[in-house]
């Protein structure tokens, strides 16, 4: 079930400072929104959409970062006028929310190692999935995050608290990308057989395409969290299309946001 509801902002936290040359509000934020209706329903990997300004006709989708059954946390980076407006939310502000949308994630029953590979703000998609997976499975869980810029590093403490293995690097300091981290992890000899690994990735599309290629070559199960401009988020408007290698079409909002990377036509 998907509901349209009004949520109340409980708290807004600036997780990463961003770049001062990009404006005073630049950065990465966490917004805690009181919305029991959605918080009770949401499953890991699902997203909500937030109403935008009058000159933006489309709502903005965000994966739910965490939930306590009453509130949900959204983590977002300021990328335009709408996210900049969200970055100025004050406690008590009412926000129009629609959700939970999309399909929840699933863990392969025989997976012995789960790897979550985030590129930049893509890491924000993994908050709830990792917390859920930790409770759900005995499998080894590795969270890896590659950031381009030190000023956008966020979330590491949250994952550390969950008690999972954490690897991260910034391109600025370590000269390593998320893809480099992925290769590094795969060199770890204590990993189980490739067929017992399940990898989830979220980040810029070229990064995900590269990771998908590496996994395909190694025979590793790879799931990607995709993003597309979304009209209705309900499977109605057929706007957020994803082309599959089979020639079929899928939609991020109703079939996704998580897709089997080997089925996605990365040139489509």
């Amino acid at each position: 079930m998907i509901v349209a509801t009004t949520a109340t902002v409980q708290e807004l936290i600036r997780l990463a400072p961003g770049r001062t040359d990009k404006g005073v509000n630049d950065g990465i934020y966490a917004a805690d929104l009181l919305c029991p209706g959605i918080a009770k329903l949401v499953r890991p990997g699902q997203f909500v959409t937030v109403a935008a300004s009058q000159t933006s006709v489309l709502r903005r989708p965000f994966t739910v970062y965490s939930t306590d059954g009453q509130t949900i946390r959204l983590v977002f980076r300021t990328v335009g006028p709408n996210t900049e407006r969200y970055a100025r939310w004050k406690e008590g502000v009412e926000v129009s929310l629609l959700g939970p949308c999309g399909q929840a994630m699933a863990i392969k029953p025989d997976a012995e190692c789960l790897i979550f590979l985030g590129g930049g703000c893509g890491l924000a998609s993994f908050g709830y999935p990792v917390a859920w997976a930790k409770k759900q499975t005995q499998a080894r869980i590795i969270v890896a995050a590659g950031f381009r810029d030190n000023r956008y590093v966020f979330g590491l403490e949250d994952f550390r608290k969950l008690g999972v293995e954490l690897k991260f690097a910034t391109q600025q300091e370590a000269g390593k990308t998320a893809v480099d981290l992925c290769r590094e992890i795969f060199r770890d000899e204590s990993l189980p057989d490739w067929s017992k690994i399940q990898l989830f990735t979220c980040g810029p599309k070229p990064m995900m395409a590269e990771v998908a290629g590496i996994c395909r070559a190694a025979g590793i199960d790879c799931s990607v969290f995709l993003e597309e401009v979304m009209g209705c988020a309900l499977g109605v408007c057929k706007g957020c299309v994803v082309k599959m290698t089979s020639g079929e079409t899928r939609y991020v909002c109703e079939d996704g946001p998580i897709f089997d990377a080997s089925e996605v036509d990365w040139n489509g």
Binding site: Q54, T55, S56, V57, L58, E228, V229, M230, G231, C237, K238, G239, C240, V241, V242, K243, G247, E248, T249, G268
Partner: peptide, 13 residues
């Protein structure tokens, strides 16, 4: 199947 992506782009209003 409909058209290939992108199928939607926002403009001012």
């Amino acid at each position: 199947p409909g058209n290939p992506p992108p199928r939607l782009r926002e403009t001012a209003s």
